[in-house]
Nucleic acid binder design. Structure first.
Lengths: 103, 103
DNA sequence: TAGCTATATAACTGCAACAGCATGTACAGC
DNA sequence: GCTGTACATGCTGTTGCAGTTATATAGCTA
């Protein structure tokens, strides 16, 4: 199972996920949308599948790819301790104090 | 300016950022912590610098590296439309309804 | 069965990233 | 000035990935 971070490093794969966020899609749609060859798209889909970020539902010769967002939680978790930092100074201070209140 | 996503694909660089989250550090400290050679560490630091994720403050021959979290906002922004999805079903529904109230 | 459609896999190519080693640079202390 | 320390850069080999074309597989349709 590849790391989500590495999987998202490729813009085409992020684009695919963005498209699947709206609704499940066929390989053909995705191919056209990302502007790659069909085999190229299939390769990216394989990577996404192995990372658990998409699932496939076969229907005759077609394959419906759908989003499976759970692995993104790992990225979100890594990001969490940083998240308060990049707001402007006032917001940053405010959130910092807010988080201290909870302790 | 490289993409933050690509920069974070390497675990060593994420580790470096995690260490800098606590306090600024010297290259020597980071080298020991990540378990790479000193030149290897310097190279990762260069990548982080070019991505705007760290800044350097020279002090004699030493270089204090400090975190600059702003570029992480891009990742956070990409992640945002996904974030409600991976909570358990109840929370997911709840947040979804919450977000609809704002409209 | 033959042929068409949709997708996956294979084989190949080019390139960029990463790691190691050696060397260069800058500063401090003596 | 010389030596040591702290770090950066250059070079090289290797590996892995993204992209292509060609081919295989599976299921429909006639």
């Amino acid at each position: 199972m590849p790391e989500p971070f590495a999987v998202l490093a490729d813009p085409a794969r992020r684009r695919i996920l963005d498209l699947l966020r709206e609704r499940p899609r066929l390989v053909g749609e995705l191919t056209e949308a990302v502007g790659l060859s069909q085999p190229g798209t299939s390769k990216h889909l394989r990577v996404l599948r192995e990372a658990g970020l998409v699932t496939v539902r076969p229907e005759a010769q077609r394959r419906w790819y759908e989003l499976r967002p759970e692995p993104l939680a790992e990225i979100d978790a890594w990001l969490t301790p940083y998240r308060w930092m990049w707001a402007d100074r006032f917001d940053a201070l405010e959130r910092h104090l807010d988080s201290m209140e909870d302790e």
